[in-house]
């Protein structure tokens, strides 16, 4: 099958490793071959966590600049920072709720305006879905479900060879028992939001 390359960028603690795990499980359920790579050495110390997930026949487990079919950002400035991973056809999904780095807090650098981030992304990758995933995560019952909200939006985009049903099944299998209902709700909220804001 065609190779599809997904990059997820997040700030340490936002749960992108769990999101990757769910997508990996969904790939297994769908009989799609998958490899992932993550850089997470300093995640707990406030650094950026990047996951690369390659679906299909390619053997590499990392993704070169410009070669992502899809970029999902859990944090708007991190999505913008990862623009070099995209080409003009890359589908981009980003949350709009900022997690400003402490460097901005101590006056070393200015966090860009959200509207500015959105237009800088859209100018480069017209296929952009941007919404406040944190609002939906809270609506689902816990800010920690932000990752699953974005997984919902990602599945709605239909870029990856994964169906809504298999990803829901993977969420049931791979997330903590007590959180499954909340995660399914988060998943559906993300899916519907992407439907509503997609171009």
């Amino acid at each position: 099958m065609d190779t599809k390359r997904l990059i997820i960028v997040a700030v340490g603690g936002q749960g992108n490793l769990l999101a990757s795990k769910v997508l990996g499980e969904a790939a297994l359920l769908s009989g799609v071959s998958v490899r992932m790579s993550e850089i997470h050495g300093m995640a707990q110390r406030g650094g950026v966590v990047e996951s690369a997930i390659v679906f299909g026949d390619a053997q590499s487990s990392i993704i070169s600049d410009g070669e992502a079919d899809m970029l999902v950002g859990f944090e708007p400035a991190e999505t913008l920072r990862a623009m070099n991973r995209c080409n003009v056809n890359t589908k981009v999904i980003t949350s709009l709720s900022p997690v400003p780095p402490f460097t901005a807090a101590i006056g070393r650098g200015v966090y860009p305006e959200i509207e500015n981030i959105v237009s800088l992304i859209r100018e480069r990758t017209p296929s952009l879905v941007a919404f406040d995933a944190m609002k939906l995560a809270k609506e689902a019952g816990n800010p920690m479900t932000l990752n699953i909200v974005l997984v919902g939006a990602l599945v709605q985009s239909n870029v990856l060879p994964l169906t809504r049903e298999t990803v829901e099944e993977a969420i049931t299998l791979r997330t903590k028992k007590g959180f499954v209902d909340m995660n399914i709700k988060a998943f559906n909220l993300g899916f519907d939001a992407a439907q509503g804001v997609a171009l």
Partner: peptide, 22 residues
């Protein structure tokens, strides 16, 4: 070469996220 990275010129400097003491 169809997967050419988009032009990142014009993107302002984004404050870094160096790992930090917790």
């Amino acid at each position: 070469t169809h997967l050419k990275p988009v032009d990142t010129k014009g993107i302002p400097d984004i404050p870094q996220r160096p790992p930090n003491l917790c």
